[in-house]
């Protein structure tokens, strides 16, 4: 048998950071919000807002269930997922019991309020005032038989995934 030799270890070392190789600050983020639960809506919105607060451009793309976050009829009624959410630290079967989702949602809203974090609708207004670009996904719209009027006014446009990549030029893309 021919002995298998391990490949020689890479001799390259981490480049040292000097003026020429120092990491460049982030100038733009493009955040894809693909989930419509309360606990998955906030991270994208808060990250986008923090970006704007520190002078980073922010683009938000709401697709699939994420579209719920900008739907007029759903934005005020987003729920926390209690089933299939290991971070709930309750058995999945209990999470499915009637009333559990409502309870978890109520608890989360209360905590958000305590920390002075605004409801999703207000956060979308803040993002709009902050100059974040807000887009809905055309395919998700078609899938749900929605019209532009079904979305909150803060949405700038309904665009395709290809359009999203154009809008995201030069951005760090974050998928949530």
């Amino acid at each position: 048998m021919t002995p298998v030799t391990a490949p020689a270890p890479a001799t390259e070392t981490q480049p040292t950071r000097d003026a020429t190789t120092a990491p460049q600050p982030i100038q733009k983020v493009a955040i894809i919000v693909s989930k419509g639960t309360l606990d998955m809506a906030y991270p994208g919105l808060v990250l986008a807002n923090a970006a704007r607060m520190t002078g980073i451009e922010a683009t938000l793309f709401f697709t699939f269930w994420g579209l719920d976050v900008v739907r007029k009829d759903r934005i005020d009624n987003l729920h926390v997922a209690t089933v299939g959410n290991p971070s709930m630290h309750i058995p999945t079967m209990l999470g499915g019991l009637p009333g559990m989702e409502g309870l978890a949602t109520k608890m989360m809203r209360k905590e958000m309020d305590r920390l002075d974090i605004p409801p999703v609708r207000e956060l979308m207004e803040i993002l709009d005032a902050a100059g974040a670009e807000i887009y809905g996904c055309q395919m998700a719209m078609d899938m749900n038989h929605l019209e532009r009027d079904d979305l909150i006014d803060e949405v700038d446009d309904v665009i395709s995934a290809m359009d999203f990549y154009d809008k995201a030029a030069g951005a760090q893309v974050i998928f949530i």
């Binding site: 808060v46 807002n49 923090a50 704007r52 607060m53 520190t54 002078g55 002075d116 803040i126």
Partner: peptide, 20 residues
């Protein structure tokens, strides 16, 4: 260029901890 950061900086305060 970022009111969350710059207002505090020009006001001689630390960078705010709040994300909103």
């Amino acid at each position: 260029d970022g009111p969350g950061k710059l207002a505090a900086k020009v006001a001689g305060l630390p960078k705010p901890k709040a994300c909103i």
